[in-house]
Design a protein around this nucleic acid. Structure first.
Length: 874
RNA sequence: GGGCGCGUAGCUCAGGGGUAGAGCGUCGCCCUUACAAGGCGAAUGUCGGCGGUUCGAAACCGUCCGCGCCCACCA
């Protein structure tokens, strides 16, 4: 609190303090909303449903600005729909986040000097549950702080009982439909996490490597192959060349000696080989490279695995026990000693896959895993967008979605982890394989064991839009709230999550899409547009800002940055600016309350309203219409901006200022204006509520005495428009601005009262004389007039004389500058209107516009000339 | 290698065939009884370069330069 604020006398007619203190205001409100059940949706309601399921945050996480951003938008959408009379459901929950969470708990264990194997599977999983109970809810508290209007009675977790049921049900169904199968293939293996990961969990980046060319074979039968992965040569079972490659035709079908081993390997011809690349000959390691595996299949080659799950060489000999990278240099050294290295290129930049969880270099590995056959599912997922049943917003993102679903490889879903949904498949003593459905007893007896793997975490989150509503049970919730309306999430998880929900949703719900619209957001960045990261210290804990400036300020800043599909920069200065806006709302409402603004009774009919009143009501309705249209197009930045400017520039800086004169004069116009001001604030606060729920709740309930703006009716455009009043007030604003500039140029202090004579008769501004005098600090009359400002009003002119100490030279200079500008304008417009091609081809409204500019320029020139002539000689 | 997007005021970004916009920052005056977290006023741009289409281009087309992101089995 500033000294200044403390010196303020308490406002007599207001219960509100002079300054907005978000921490005090926001605190109690959220719990009250929850207690009153405002966010609980009723499946039996007659109202039309509006559903958003939250992208479940990982239990390992805490709220970062990216969450705050998306949550603000989802909250705004569901709050608005609730106010519009929808049965609005925003369903919260969290994701068990398989690898991520297991890694975190393993790290914890590591601090105690233990590994998960010391505990054993059951105890370890128990430990993860404990961890989840203890820390997992952190983000839920942060959601409350942010003001998320979620239905806590429906909170879900991707490993809760219902979800497990759903997972087992769909697994069984897919298995029976032969859309889930088990196969041995090359998979992406993380030698640190010790599990398979799917293609999209691999992040490629350019790494420095070395491309070595090494000579295989003896005597005349030699061939040079190039590789970046020399260590895999221990597992080579062929050399491949292109069938048309004349250089090697004589070798195809022959066997050559593989160096450092006692094996010979065949030379095979395969069209996959690019004769232009390197030497045109490629070593083939079917067990450690997906391409080589394919070649191996075609030529019936043996697959030799040369390293274990940690990437340690297992081949007997000098390299046994070496890590894969140590083995690489050791083998290159050994080959060099043999004179078999014929060329080396280093550094050789090439793309290398890394585990998205721990950044370890991924090792392609031959392994038995479970797979989802995605072709038919992906086809349906693509078609649903192609035929418009699901809209992707912004539309440019569609292409990215199609590129993926239309070129999808089968999805490896088994993970060699302990934390997750266990694969519901049992193996019998005689090789039987039984997939167990949710209501079935697993086979019992000697020798039966369950598959030890768990499912990819995205398998269960792929079921999220319907499993959270009770599927596979045909619940009331499912009936009422599925298909959900909007899926709002970052564009970074289109493939991980969005596409999988589409596939599973269509499959499980008999072709009913999981959501009507996919709204993709950008990522939150710092104030310079740079990526925020913990390591560089640029990551901000949103709680810090929420505590300092209020949740509303953080929310408003994020909403203002939300241009569709683009990244969102945010800086502390901007949050401060939003806090200032909240404070402005606060004080404007205080002013209104102190002056008796009211929402009692009907709005007076238009005949009883002043032009000022009609102007602001006209603008109010335009704003309602504009905001509605922007909401429907997910244009959060624009609608926030529109509200910001309407409230601040038009309502607070003009309507409130103009109304002061009306209030001072009293009488019937003052009564009318109180009602209009109450109306304008009532509607404006409602319009702002979805984005800044806390401050609007406090102000709206104080202003209206209503129970809560959360359950208030969303404003409707009454259709009232008054373009004449808008024009009139616009002119008034121009005149006032012009005179203010004149005053400022003359060095008159803003508060200094200046005697002045207004000649407004016969102009539209006549009724506004009192307001003009008030806003311009003009005294009723003056004796000596030193300078004349003559201002244009709707065709006529207003002569405005100002007395005081006038800097004639400065005024002359300014007018000369304005005159030059007006003359230039006139010349341009004249040239344009003299251009026959322009007149012939330009549309009428443009020609009219140019004519208007010419008229205006003429008026300006006349006015300025007049003023210059009226200036006393220096 | 393919695809998408972006280059507009000091910074972050809107806009979009017919006189260049916002917020923040900057400068000047002011505690004008809602608000100094405020008010009023001001300055600031060859809208990335070059060509083309057009009566008119910052906007449309082509091309070049710079930047970002996504995809790809670059041995």
């Amino acid at each position: 609190m500033t000294e200044n604020a403390q010196q303020q006398p308490p406002a007599p007619d207001s219960e509100l303090p002079t300054q907005y203190a978000p921490a005090e205001v926001e605190g109690p409100l959220y719990e009250r909303w929850v207690e009153r059940g405002y966010f609980e949706a009723d499946a039996k309601s007659e109202k039309p449903p509006y559903t958003i399921v939250i992208p479940p945050p990982n239990v390992t996480g805490s709220l970062h600005l990216g969450h705050a951003f998306q949550h603000t938008l989802m909250d705004a959408l569901t709050r608005r729909k609730r106010m519009q009379g929808f049965e609005s459901l925003w369903l919260p929950g969290m994701d068990h986040a398989g690898i991520a969470t297991q890694n975190v708990v393993e790290r914890e264990l590591g601090k105690e000097g233990k590994s998960r194997h010391d505990l054993g599977r059951e105890a370890f999983v128990e430990r993860v549950w404990q961890w989840k109970d203890e820390y997992g809810g952190k983000i839920l508290g942060q959601m409350r702080r942010l003001g998320d209007g979620v239905d806590w009675s429906r909170e879900r977790f991707t490993m809760d009982e219902g979800l497990s049921q759903a997972v087992q049900t769909i697994f069984k169904r897919l298995y029976d439909d032969e859309l889930i199968y088990r196969a041995e293939r090359i998979i992406n293996w993380c030698p640190r996490c010790l599990t398979a990961i799917s293609d999209i969990e691999v992040e490629y980046q350019d790494d420095d490597g070395e491309l070595v060319s090494m000579k295989y074979g003896e005597g005349d039968d030699t061939i040079v192959v190039a590789t970046t992965r020399a260590e895999t040569m221990l597992g080579d079972t062929a050399v491949a060349v292109h069938p048309d490659d004349e250089r090697y035709k004589h070798l195809v079908g022959r066997h050559i000696k593989l160096p450092l081993t006692d094996r010979t390997i065949p030379v095979v011809a395969d069209t996959h080989v690019d004769p232009e690349f390197g030497t045109g000959a490629v070593k083939v390691t079917p067990a450690h490279d997906p391409n080589d595996f394919a070649i191996g299949q075609r030529h019936d080659l043996e697959s030799l695995t040369v390293m274990d799950e940690r990437g340690v060489i297992t081949v007997h000999g000098p390299f046994e026990g070496l890590d894969r990278f140590e083995a690489r240099s050791a083998i290159v050294a050994a080959l060099r000693a043999d004179g078999r290295i014929v060329a080396e290129k280093r550094p050789y930049v090439h793309s290398v896959g890394h585990c998205s969880r721990c950044k370890t270099t991924v090792e392609p590995r031959l392994s038995m895993q479970w797979w989802v056959k995605v072709a038919p599912l992906a086809k349906a997922a693509g078609d649903a967008v192609r035929d418009g049943r699901v809209k992707i917003h912004p539309q440019e993102m569609e292409k990215r979605y199609f590129d993926w679903v239309d070129n999808l490889h089968d999805w490896c879903i088994s993970r060699q982890l302990w934390w997750g949904h266990r694969i519901p498949v049992w193996y019998g003593p005689d090789g039987e394989v039984v997939c167990v459905g949710p209501d079935e007893e697993p086979p019992s007896g000697e020798g039966w064991t369950q598959d030890s793997d768990v499912l990819d975490t995205w398998f269960s989150s792929g079921l999220w839009p319907f499993s959270t509503l009770g599927w596979p049970e045909q619940t009331l919730d499912l009936k009422k709230f599925y298909t959900t309306d909007v899926l709002l999430t970052g564009h970074d998880i289109i493939f991980f999550w969005v596409a999988r929900m589409m596939m599973f949703g269509l499959y499980a719900m008999d072709g009913e899409v999981p959501f009507k619209t996919i709204a993709l957001t950008g990522l939150v960045r710092d104030q310079f547009g740079k990526k925020m990261s913990k390591s560089s210290g640029t990551a901000v804990d949103p709680l810090d800002w929420m505590n300092a400036y209020g949740s509303d300020a953080v929310r408003f800043t994020l909403a203002k940055g939300a241009n569709p599909g683009t990244d969102v920069p945010i800086g502390e200065d901007w949050v401060q600016a939003s806090r200032n806006f909240a404070n402005k709302l606060w004080n404007a409402t205080r002013f209104a309350l102190m002056n008796g603004a009211t929402i009692e009774g009907d709005l007076p009919p238009a005949e009883q309203l002043s032009a000022t009143d009609r102007w602001i009501l006209s603008r109010l309705n335009e704003t309602v219409a504009e905001v509605d249209a922007l909401y429907d197009d997910f244009q959060f930045a624009k609608l926030s901006d529109a509200l910001y400017h309407f409230a601040w520039d038009e309502v607070f800086d003009w309507y409130v200022e103009l109304s002061k004169t009306t209030f001072m004069a009293g009488g019937e116009p003052a009564e009318v204006s109180k009602r209009v001001l109450g109306e304008v604030l009532d509607v404006t606060l409602k319009l702002l509520h979805p984005i800044v729920p806390f401050v609007t709740e406090t102000l709206w309930t104080t202003l209206t005495g209503g129970e809560s703006v959360v359950i208030a009716d969303w404003p409707k455009d009454s259709g009232f428009r008054d373009s004449a009043a808008e024009k009139e007030i616009e002119t008034l604003q121009q005149v006032i601005t012009e005179v203010r500039r004149f005053r400022a140029d003359q060095g008159l202090q803003p508060g200094q009262r200046v005697p002045a004579r207004l000649t407004l008769d016969g102009t539209a501004l006549a009724p506004h004389e009192a307001a003009i005098r008030q806003l311009l600090r003009l005294q009723p009359e003056g004796d000596t007039f030193a300078a004349t400002a003559t201002l244009p009003v709707g065709g006529a002119t207003v002569a405005l004389d100002l007395s005081g100490t006038i800097d004639i030279a400065a005024e002359r200079k300014r007018l000369a500058k304005d005159l030059a500008a007006a003359e230039k304008e006139k010349a341009q417009a004249t040239a344009k209107l003299g251009n026959e091609a322009f007149l012939a081809k330009a549309p009428d409204n443009v020609v009219d516009k140019i004519r208007g500019r010419l008229t205006k320029a003429d008026e300006d020139i006349a006015r300025i000339t007049n003023q210059l002539a009226g200036l006393p000689q220096a």
